[in-house]
């Protein structure tokens, strides 16, 4: 660790990206601090420079754009819970943000950007965002680029927050006819989820169900079951939905986590349970008009 630490608080995005570029390794970006401060307090991280991005106006605000709802990376969980645009276009996201642990204090301070960049296996936002097919906007010395969130998650050593900045999250509005649910299983109020699942279900014109289903807190990264499930549903149209979800979970979740929230066998089993419960709850919510 390092005792001499420096601090920078750029006021413009281009200043921030240029500074990150100039600093090379050893810089670390901080916004709400909910992820980094515990490590800092215990001496577990020691960047040579802390770059506080909380003054970057470009990273703020919630807007409706042609690509969908564009949410600034500095938007805190509480805003996501109560913002009317998100409430109506992305109710699944509002709901999932309310399930984040740590209490109102963390909801008031923690940012959606920080939550994503942390890539913490037990966090709540990522499964919902993946089910919503979110794109992220990244600023670096090469300018802005937009990539699907899932692309970030496959990179094990991404440079977000050290070399590049997550600026905005862009999410297509949900189909108002869809049903959705977010299921989280916690051992006690104060623990991380042992498993969570985000589901969005739409009844297609032919009557078949289109199910977007992502489970979290069971593997190092959220597991997107959408593709495998739709294949199974196509190949075995007559099998019970719950059985299909079970089978997909069994097949796709190959390396469950084992920690204080439960052993690997339990986590895998709970992934099945929350996935089935989320889909069932989502189906109930489908608007039949």
């Amino acid at each position: 660790m390092n005792l001499r630490m420096q601090y920078a608080r750029p006021r413009k995005l281009d200043q921030a990206t240029e500074l990150l570029d100039a600093l090379g390794t050893g810089a670390m970006v901080i916004a709400g601090g909910q992820e980094l401060m515990p490590y800092l307090n215990y001496g577990r991280i020691s960047p040579s420079i802390f770059m506080d991005i909380s003054g970057l106006a470009e990273l703020e605000g919630i807007e409706e754009t042609a690509q969908g709802i564009s949410i600034g990376a500095l938007t805190v969980h509480r805003q996501i819970q109560i913002n009317p645009v998100i409430n109506s276009a992305l109710p699944l996201l509002s709901f999932a943000a309310a399930q984040i642990g740590g209490g109102r204090q963390v909801h008031n301070r923690g940012t959606i950007g920080g939550n994503i960049v942390a890539m913490h296996a037990l966090y709540d936002i990522a499964p919902a965002l993946i089910a919503l097919r979110a794109q992220i906007e990244v600023a670096g010395n090469q300018g802005l680029r937009t990539v699907p969130l899932t692309e970030l998650l496959v990179e094990t050593d991404h440079d977000l927050g050290t070399k590049t900045l997550l600026t905005r999250i862009v999410i297509p509005a949900m189909d108002p006819a869809s049903g959705w649910a977010y299921e989280k299983l916690k051992i006690t109020e104060g623990s991380y989820g042992s498993a969570n699942a985000a589901a969005i279900v739409l009844r297609k014109p032919d009557g078949d169900l289109q199910v977007d289903l992502v489970v979290g807190a069971v593997a190092e990264q959220p597991v997107d079951l959408t593709g495998p499930l739709s294949e199974r549903l196509r190949d075995n149209p007559d099998t019970d939905l719950d059985e299909q979800i079970d089978a997909v979970c069994q097949a796709v979740i190959t390396d469950p986590i084992s920690d204080q929230r439960g052993h690997a066998e339990y986590r895998k089993a709970m992934a099945c349970v929350v996935a089935k419960r989320a889909v069932a709850a989502a189906i109930k919510k489908i608007k039949t008009s």
Binding site: I30, M37, P38, N41, Q105, N108
Partner: peptide
């Protein structure tokens, strides 16, 4: 680490955990 809440204060009228809030911010 932001888990117990004994350090809760208000910043601009909203509660935060002061142990995981950077003073500089």
């Amino acid at each position: 680490t932001g888990h117990c809440g004994a350090c809760t204060v208000m910043v601009d009228g909203s509660i935060v955990k002061s142990c995981i809030t950077l003073a500089a911010s």
